[in-house]
């Protein structure tokens, strides 16, 4: 249980760290910094798991790779989804089709 908690905390810290290094820029722009954060997190986690829990590199690598892929997908989708952008724009009141399309393109 402690091991799983440590992995969850490491994941949370890396996600927070990614947002801090992005500093509000688009994901594609700050991707190098994000990859560095995830790589650093992986090395620390892998070292800790190997040393204190006897967990080999394959399990941690598969987990970390899958976690990065999932985070990247969600983060990138959130940033680029036109549907979500349209829903967001409509929160202030109704908009016509053409206005909604124009505004969605304008904020990108």
């Amino acid at each position: 249980m402690t091991v799983l908690l440590a992995v969850a905390i490491a994941l949370l810290l890396v996600v927070i760290g990614s947002e801090l290094v992005l500093r509000g820029v688009r994901l594609q722009t700050g991707l190098t910094r994000v990859v560095l954060v995830w790589t650093a997190g992986y090395l620390v986690l892998e070292g800790s798991m190997l040393r204190y829990a006897g967990i080999g590199p394959v399990a941690v690598t598969v987990f970390w790779g899958g976690a990065f892929l999932s985070w990247f997908g969600i983060r990138s989708h959130l940033e680029s989804s036109i549907l979500l952008c349209m829903v967001y724009l409509l929160r202030n009141g109704p908009l016509t089709d053409s206005r909604l399309v124009t505004d969605s393109v304008a904020v990108r």
Binding site: A53, G65, G66, I82
Partner: peptide, 28 residues
């Protein structure tokens, strides 16, 4: 614990690749 981490990792790969596929199919 290693088994849980590995299984969750494989599942995360499936989830992540699903999002990638969706983006490839739907990205404007």
């Amino acid at each position: 614990a290693e088994w849980v981490i590995l299984t969750l990792g494989v599942l995360a790969c499936v989830f992540g690749l699903t999002i990638v596929r969706l983006m490839l199919l739907r990205s404007v």
